[in-house]
Design a binder for these strands. Structure first.
Lengths: 224, 224
DNA sequence: GATCGCCTCCACCTTTTGGGGGAGACCAGA
DNA sequence: TCTGGTCTCCCCCAAAAGGTGGAGGCGATC
């Protein structure tokens, strides 16, 4: 049985969603809340599996409440944001807060039920338009590299390896150590790859590596 | 009426999907293809609105075919990848190729129909597990910056400006020119910011800028 | 067998970089 | 007023980086 909580400041809307869900044999609405504060408290007490969360609410908005509930961590629940509009910032904040779903209130009842089951099952569910935006942003971030990646192909294997280590912020000496070669050799490779790529120095090489996707933000544990 | 093409090398599977879709009053299966090559040709001739594309096929795989069909551009169609497995690389390549959907073949028939309508409607549809991964990667990419961004706050305004230009791959002389100050001053700022951030050289500064979100891939027009 | 590309190193040289001071001007706050 | 922080610039110096040219070994290809 899926334990669901519905959070919305409009009691009527809240009841509507609750009724739709309670109508399902495998879903039980165990709590309702009308503000973010109430939601946090109710989540703590009732430990729902899924929370349907409105964004605009008095006292504390749904995104803030989501972040706090998920941060608390003693709850293993998942949150689906349920809103009327879908402005970009909300989506962004919601995903960052840890929401597993983001759907619009005009969603058909069956789809809402499906979204609840999907998220309970470990998946994520976004409104189609949002999925589309997420994809395009994702592709943009990693897709710049096309023409740049071609330049990469002009490098030899070893040169690409050296470039990869350069993009870690390593010095020539460190690269030599990492690749088990002499630092003179590293210098040769560096000079060669800079020349082939039309770059001036290793700083530009780092930029290049990030831009073409050889290096990616979020992979490095930067103590540096 | 939605014009759909089904591409799969297994005729039985292909017919199955085609029958499910043709059964809908607003959907018409206008073509079928068994290889990537056939798909490209059929897409050109029949101009479907939606293409359901398998990945593993002889002659040319579905991702390659997708890329070529969408590159051709004279077609305004949208592609939904339909596969048995969902290895990361496939998803990645598919989105990059321009697919608007990525669903698994074990999807319930109604959900497939819904996916077709959703994508035809301009949205995107991913399998829940993939949506989840996409979100987590997205959040990771943009979320790394928190602890790093704190380090950024220790810098003065000018130092942050200098760091921003450094992360463009500029030399001290170029930075001086860009900020209308002497190169001696630039050196002072660079030394100071490296020291404050615990970095050794400008290459590491570039890495830092990307990792903390000060610089972002896909914003630079790299002639460098 | 000769050629070519790649990897490995060397030496020599210039430029850039980064560190260590110091100094004057400016501004905000104690 | 004085202090502290910031921005601006200076000098000197050592280390690193980058360019140039050369060399030997090695595998693939012609």
């Amino acid at each position: 049985m899926l334990r669901v909580m519905v959070v919305d400041d409009q009691a009527l809307v809240r009841r509507g969603f609750a009724l739709v869900l309670d109508n399902e044999p495998d879903i039980e609405v165990v709590a309702e809340a009308g503000t973010g504060i109430e939601a946090i408290e109710a989540a703590r007490q009732r430990q729902p599996d899924i929370i349907l969360m409105d964004i605009r609410m008095p006292e504390m908005d749904g995104l803030e409440a989501t972040a706090r509930i998920l941060e608390a961590g003693d709850a293993t629940c998942r949150v689906i944001i349920l809103t009327t509009f879908d402005p970009d910032e909300y989506v962004f904040r919601a995903l960052r807060a840890g929401a597993s779903g983001f759907v619009l209130k005009d969603i058909p009842p069956e789809a809402l039920v499906e979204a609840v089951r999907t998220v309970a099952d470990g998946g994520a569910m976004l409104a189609p338009a949002i999925t589309k935006r997420l994809i395009s942003q994702f592709v943009q971030k990693l897709g710049t590299g096309r023409n740049l990646a071609e330049r990469l192909e002009r490098l030899t294997t070893r040169e690409r390896e050296v470039l990869a280590v350069i993009s870690d912020g390593k010095s020539n000496a460190e690269i030599a150590e990492a690749l088990f070669i002499g630092s003179a050799t590293v210098k040769t490779h560096v000079s060669s790859l800079l020349s082939k790529l039309g770059l001036r120095d290793r700083a530009q090489a780092v930029v290049f590596a990030y831009e073409c996707g050889l290096a990616t933000a979020g992979e490095r544990d930067i103590g540096l």
